[in-house]
Design a protein around this nucleic acid. Structure first.
Lengths: 136, 136
DNA sequence: TTGTTTGACTTTATTAATGAAAGGAGTTTG
DNA sequence: CAAACTCCTTTCATTAATAAAGTCAAACAA
């Protein structure tokens, strides 16, 4: 199981996953090799699923961040699921949910024009409610 | 501005941000020092905001993933905002939104008991609609 | 108590990566 | 054309990662 030091390691890596093992070791009061074997165990056990980068999407030309609650028109979800597979460049997550709607779709768009086009196409497979993120 | 190589770099780092500059260089057909200066520029310009780790929350004992649409009872949001500041351990994001509700709250909980307790406390400051994530 | 095993760590030494400096090729600018 | 600039490669000194060996303390059995 995970002890306090493992939690500290996860905490430091979530703040900066490019720390060297030496730097990480200093932060959690271990040597490089010791912290390195702990990190390897966290990876092997699946607690650490991977390492990624936080990218500023606005600077990349994708300022519109939307959540779309999906109501599929029939009990047959396949047309909707096939549709979003064709729109992967806009989709961050497609959560299957219980509660209001069948899915909650998190997306990014470069402009209202592109969003509008997306919604028109989406509407052939599902009804929706749109929420635009104003601030995080 | 960003060219094709920069996009490749962001793509590779989002798949694995712990690549060495040498490995990253091989993937985008550059030498270590060349890719290193490009990454430094992406950091300085704010395109890269940071590096983080993907943690399996289920293995960490937090299997319940919820989206909560918030309807504050008055136009005065402060009591709600103050409340969620006291519940930071459960909150992943608090998005201010346009559309249905005032905020969309993304949270994690270890159990239904804890979620229930959270909702009861939340209800003193706001109404809500709850969606539980079943699958990603 | 004594000896053995186990697990987690440190130390050491080798291998590999980083980062700074120098230099070259291609492009832009006066 | 020449100067300046950008972006890259090469080289080398410094620093980190990794594998192997050794240390230490806790748990357990005789």
């Amino acid at each position: 199981m995970l002890d306090h030091t493992d939690m500290l390691i996860l905490d430091e890596l979530s703040k900066n996953s490019r720390l060297t093992m030496k730097e990480l070791g200093e932060k959690v009061h271990l040597t490089g090799p010791a912290v390195s074997t702990r990190v390897a165990k966290l990876e092997d056990s699946g607690v650490i699923e991977g390492y990624t980068v936080k990218v500023n999407q606005v600077k990349l030309g994708c300022p519109i961040h939307a959540f779309i609650t999906i109501f599929t028109q029939s009990t047959y979800h396949q047309p909707y699921l096939a549709f979003i597979k064709t729109e992967e460049q806009h989709i961050i997550h497609n959560y299957k949910i219980s509660g209001e709607g069948c899915y909650l779709l998190e997306c990014r768009f470069p402009s209202n024009e592109v969003l509008n086009h997306f919604l028109t196409a989406l509407n052939e497979h599902a009804n929706y409610k749109l929420s635009i993120v104003i601030d995080k």
